[in-house]
Amino acid sequence: MHELSIVANLFDLLEEQAEKVGAKKITLVKIKVGVLSGVVPELLQTAFDIYKKDTLASEAELIIEKVPLRMVCRQCHQETIRDDIILSCAHCGSTQLEKKEGTELILEKVELEIDE
């Protein structure tokens, strides 16, 4: 359960963003979680709900976008999207693939309330 530790990093980034624009409240947080990111989205949600109390994101909604594993074959140059995370091209069977998406764990955007 390293999700709490990741959420602590998330809040560092949120505070940084709020300070930048002078916001006192965060209303929405959107993150992207790759299937190979090593974190469990549901646990991230739980950790977020625990952590947000008494912070400027206490009423914020967390949206988690799950990103499947998207790869491009180095042999036939076609794209493969796999849920079973097997590194094999769906078109030619090659194992020479480049991962394009699915390993990321990123804060995509935040919605903040700006004081007048």
Binding site: Q17, V21, T27, I106, L107, E108, K109, E113, I114, E116
Partner: peptide, 9 residues
């Protein structure tokens, strides 16, 4: 209060 959306990435 007005809302602002920030792309962070």
């Amino acid at each position: 209060s007005p809302k602002k959306e920030v792309l962070v990435l």
